[in-house]
Design a protein around this nucleic acid. Structure first.
Lengths: 347, 347
DNA sequence: ACAGATTTTGGAAACGTTTCCAAATTGGCG
DNA sequence: CGCCAATTTGGAAACGTTTCCAAAATCTGT
């Protein structure tokens, strides 16, 4: 059986329904100014033929593509995957498709991925810029002619809206919390220090230490397990070893847990630990790990909603360009020396 | 400055170069039968105008869309996210875009998501069928007229290729391993028993138990933490409590770890544990958790490669329709009573 | 029942490519 | 130089929509 697939076209639908092609088109697009009878005829013709609009033709004609693009560093990463899922849900609610492309935080890939995305002429764009200072990207956004919203990281000079989380303030509060516990030599363990979010967190850490009159202690040599392990060992053997560690990333946190277990260093009695970004087993580990919990889904959802608002409602009435900043939560567990406390809402 | 974005068209290029539009087109597409001089003129015109072909117009004319669709139950789930990333990499290597839609293992969503995908006329399709017996989906695939590859789960009666992992055999081997340790009352803790992969795993478990002349003990009441907790408590209090647990899903495994920790039941001395599907902290937990490790990226990558092979190379020379079955690895850690075997790469 | 206002309808034009085919140009060779 | 073959070129048609505009049909109020 050779059921080739010469997709039925709108004129075939029109012919079968006994109406003009323009009329058929109107029925397909919501049917304004179409009489009930005609509507019915056309709809049943569509049903019978299994007609589906040809997307390419629509795009060519210049209409909406019902497509929004999402550009993220990675899609296997839980953080971005959750954002993507949340954004996808919003897109689907607006009868649109979210198309995703991944950069790997490399600006080169960024532009080329963007190009592949743009081929599909998305109605709008959701971005996580690798580098907030990327002028090429900012220029691209300005000239793109479509609404763009960035999230997790801003894009300076692009004039587009952003949805961020307060990395600075959350890191500051977290550090202050450690300080309140009496820890004085707090090591800040960093990987990927070039990323905006990480830089903000480091800034928050430094600010807190400075406020307390303590000496900041930042180590950027935590790119992977091996390096982190080496760094940690050196610090622990130094003349004035740290009494607490503040890790700025999910994977660093679990790496440190693993390393400390190997070294048989008890948490928090010998070394306290607080991590940025929650992870599934943080509550299950022994001891449970205190973390800053990010509003992950909120970021994706809010960004998408903002995009569709600009897209549908108010193309001219541009809302204020101030970034929307979402709060993080400090979830206190055992690893910072706290008694297991119910998660606090106050940042 | 209203820098609208009237993308330059091919005729503008042609005009600037002083040639016909057909000639310009030939230059853009590899330039066969074009004299060297003309070539040069057109290319510099392209350069000057920053011309980029309009993808929609090309597609409309009947070419490839350079797009493949991926339909998965979820994209926030680490398993599918990794598959997606691997498939995306392959797609990008073929200068194509992977477009993703999510079902939530619900057949209704499945067809509607598929419809949204099909709007974009993908050149091929990558599917994770919610239900291998879904006749509607199978019919759709047969009539779609484009190559389709399923992975993780088959789709019976669809005639398309599949890439699977050997859930049955892996579960059997895993159960056998527990049996070799001397465990006799092995509880198989199940959630989402309607899923194909889960059913296969249960089947493998039963087979192993039967081979050993032991009584299978399957509990499907593990849908969430609360239920799992209740189930587990009941079994532990029964007259002949289990001495080992085999969990069939990632989240069940960590749920059980958490529950046993709360109940202060030592692993593996009082209750051994072996899980299906590895997770990041499985090696870090105390004790470390033995698991079946799935070839996650392989699944996505292989499926995508298969799809592009059908797409590009051999549209008629259909390869054998036998599913490709990838092997799982049994990663032995402490929770099943094993000594920590070289904590790294033991098959 | 009729003029005018309103709603509904049909069909042509346009979107930017590619793909033809015929026309124009070039080259070879007697 | 002249003629045929081979190469190169220009431009029309087609892809399937949407969006016009004018024509047709229907509705209003008197």
């Amino acid at each position: 059986m050779r059921k080739r697939n010469p997709q039925p076209t709108l004129s075939e639908v029109a012919r079968l329904a006994g109406v003009g092609v323009g009329t058929a088109s109107r029925v397909v697009n919501g049917g304004v100014n179409v009489s009930a009878g005609t509507m019915r005829k056309v709809k049943s013709a569509i049903q019978e033929l299994g007609y589906m609009p040809n997307h390419a033709a629509r795009v060519l004609k210049g209409g909406r593509t019902k497509t929004v693009g999402l550009l993220v560093p990675s899609i296997a990463d839980h953080f971005f995957a959750s954002c993507a899922e949340a954004a996808d849900k919003v897109a689907r609610a607006h009868d649109s498709l979210l198309i995703v492309a991944v950069t790997r935080n490399q600006c080169g890939d960024e532009m080329s991925s963007l190009e592949v995305l743009m081929r599909h002429r998305p109605d709008g764009l959701l971005l996580v810029p690798s580098d907030p200072e990327n002028r090429e990207l900012a220029r691209f956004v300005r000239n793109s002619g479509i609404p763009v919203v960035t999230f997790d990281r801003p894009l300076f000079g692009s004039g587009c809206s952003s949805v961020l989380s307060d990395n600075f303030e959350a890191a500051r509060k977290a550090t202050l919390h450690l300080i309140e516990h009496g820890y004085k030599r707090i090591l800040c363990l960093v990987s990927e220090p070039e990323l905006y979010t990480i830089r903000e967190r480091v800034r928050g850490y430094r600010q807190a230490m400075e406020e307390a009159g303590l000496q900041p202690l930042v180590d950027t040599g935590a790119e992977d397990m091996a390096l982190a392990s080496r760094s940690l060992a050196i610090h622990l053997k130094s003349r004035r070893p740290p009494d607490a560690v503040f890790t700025l990333k999910n994977s660093s946190t679990s790496a440190v847990v693993q390393i400390l277990r190997q070294l048989r260093i008890p948490i928090p009695s010998r070394l306290a630990l607080l991590g940025f970004d929650d992870f599934e087993l943080a509550a299950t580990l022994h001891p449970s790990i205190s973390v800053v919990q990010q509003p992950i889904e909120d970021l994706g959802r809010t960004a998408a909603e903002l995009l569709f608002a600009e897209l549908e409602g108010h193309p001219s009435k541009r809302m204020k360009r101030e970034p929307i900043v979402l709060a993080n939560r400090l979830v206190l567990r055992r690893s910072c020396g706290c008694k297991e406390v119910p998660a606090r809402k106050d940042l």
